[in-house]
Amino acid sequence: MRLSRPVHTPGRGATDRAVPDRGELVPLAAVRCATALVAVLLGTVVWSGSFWVVLPVVVAAGAAVLPSIGLVTLSLLLLAVAYAVNVPAGSPWLLVFVAGLHAVFVLYLLLLRLPLRGWISGAALRELAWSFLRIQAVAQPVALLALLLGGAGSSPGVVAVGVAAFSAWALWLVGQHRA
């Protein structure tokens, strides 16, 4: 294409980066901050009162700013395992954690594929939110049911069968996906 350009002032402005020229765009920096904030808040809940709260906070911030598959996995595992270890059974924080862990996971997945700077449109965020809510519509009743069954106690047989069944399902799932 060949354009005849209007007169303009050259200089550094002419060499600037490409920027979108429309509204309803959220900077990726804001998404990163929100991701780190949610992860830090969840970490603060499960590690409250402990010096070790620094660990999930630092990992969460690092995973939000410079996401890599290792940091993301570490950050999510720190939150999930810490919940199982530190939060007492039957805590109503479960509902928040089911939503929060899912949100952090989705946001990490988004940031994993993107460079440091950028923008995301409001429509894309709504699409993400709609997908998130569809999953949560099933996950929250499951979490509520788990709260109701809180005092069931553990049985070695149930554990063995459950772990074996889920491991088989997970392996089948990943194998099917690769195929």
Binding site: L77, A84, L94, L101, I135, L145, L147, G150, S154, V163
Partner: peptide, 20 residues
């Protein structure tokens, strides 16, 4: 991880974390 942790500790709420 969530299911194993929940089953080992006998906590259905930890298993529920795996739902999403």
């Amino acid at each position: 991880v969530c299911i194993v942790a929940g089953l080992v500790s006998g906590r259905p709420d930890a298993v529920a974390l795996a739902a999403p």
